[in-house]
Computed example of a mutant assay.
Amino acid sequence: MKVGLFFGSFNPIHIGHLIIGDIMRDKTNLDEVWFIVSPQNPMKSSKSLLHEFDRLRMVELAIADNYHFKAMDVEFHMPRPSYTIDTLTYLSEKYPQHEFKLIIGGDNLNHFHKWKNSGQILEFYEIYVYPRPGKNKILEHPAIRFIDSPLIDISATFIRDTIKEGGSVRYLVHPDVSDYIRDKKLYY
């Protein structure tokens, strides 16, 4: 089985993430997309990060109706901060029957060379890239495949700020995620 690994803080998961996951599965040879909830991205601040179990639960709620999607907490049990190469290696050893592809945004190519063992990632894994608003670095490499998809300019930061300001995120997140945020009083 071919599995796309979509890493993220998902703080919170939003409609943009779901659209990207669906497009990647639909327009590529992927059988499934696994949403890997990262406890701590080494390149991001953790000051506004919800507890990983809340973020995982929101992912589970958002993808519950799509049997091609799976929520994964694999990085919860690994050393922190989480490095993509370590997770890819672990999953490849645990699930040798699967062929893993990495799903990233075009903006991540701007600093991909700074990722731990980026050359090893390119050597052993194909990367599916979706465009992001702004500058998307074009990195020529046989392992990198750009996927035609719409530009989605929704950010978790915007969603968190909107919630803090008492605004509506009704069409920005899945309804069950919105209910979870409201019921647990998250981001207020």
Rank of each mutant, 00 (worst) to 15 (best):
G134N: 05
V74W: 13
D183N: 15
S38K: 06
G8K: 12
F53L: 11
Q40D: 12
S155G: 05
Y180W: 12
K101Y: 15
W34L: 10
F100K: 03
G167C: 08
W34E: 08
H174P: 10
P175T: 02
K27A: 03
I85H: 01
H98Q: 12
R25T: 07
V169M: 04
K94N: 10
I163T: 05
T89L: 04
Y67A: 09
H141F: 03
H17C: 05
Y180N: 14
F146M: 00
L88H: 02
N110Q: 11
G4Y: 10
L186E: 04
A64V: 04
K47R: 11
D179S: 11
K94A: 12
K47E: 14
E52P: 08
N136H: 06
K101G: 06
H68R: 13
S178M: 07
E60W: 01
N66M: 05
F35C: 05
K101D: 10
K2W: 04
T87D: 03
M1S: 08
G106N: 04
P81K: 06
E32D: 10
L102I: 01
I152L: 15
P142M: 02
I138R: 14
P142Y: 07
I85D: 02
F7S: 06
E123F: 09
G119W: 09
F35D: 05
P12H: 10
Q97F: 07
S38L: 06
R182Y: 08
I85G: 02
L172F: 12
I138T: 13
W34D: 07
F35T: 06
E140Q: 15
N117H: 11
M72W: 08
H17Y: 09
D22P: 00
E60N: 02
E93P: 03
E60V: 07
V59R: 00
A143Q: 12
M72I: 00
P142D: 08
S118H: 13
I163N: 02
G167I: 09
L102E: 08
L172A: 02
R80H: 07
L172W: 09
K44G: 10
S92M: 04
E32K: 15
K164R: 13
G16D: 05
I147K: 01
F53P: 00
G4P: 12
Y130W: 04
G4V: 06
M78A: 11
P133D: 00
R170F: 12
S155D: 06
S48V: 14
K116H: 11
P79N: 07
E123R: 15
D26Q: 11
S118E: 03
L139E: 14
L102R: 01
F112N: 06
D31C: 08
I19W: 00
G8H: 07
P79D: 04
P79T: 10
P96H: 06
E126M: 09
L91G: 08
S82N: 05
H113T: 10
K44A: 04
R170S: 13
I159R: 14
I181Y: 10
R25I: 09
F35V: 07
E52V: 05
G105M: 00
K137A: 12
E123V: 04
T28W: 01
D65E: 14
Q120L: 12
I19C: 04
H98C: 14
W34H: 15
F10H: 06
D179P: 02
D31M: 09
G21T: 06
Q120A: 10
A64P: 00
W34F: 05
I23A: 01
G16W: 03
N117S: 11
K94S: 15
R182K: 13
R145S: 10
I152N: 06
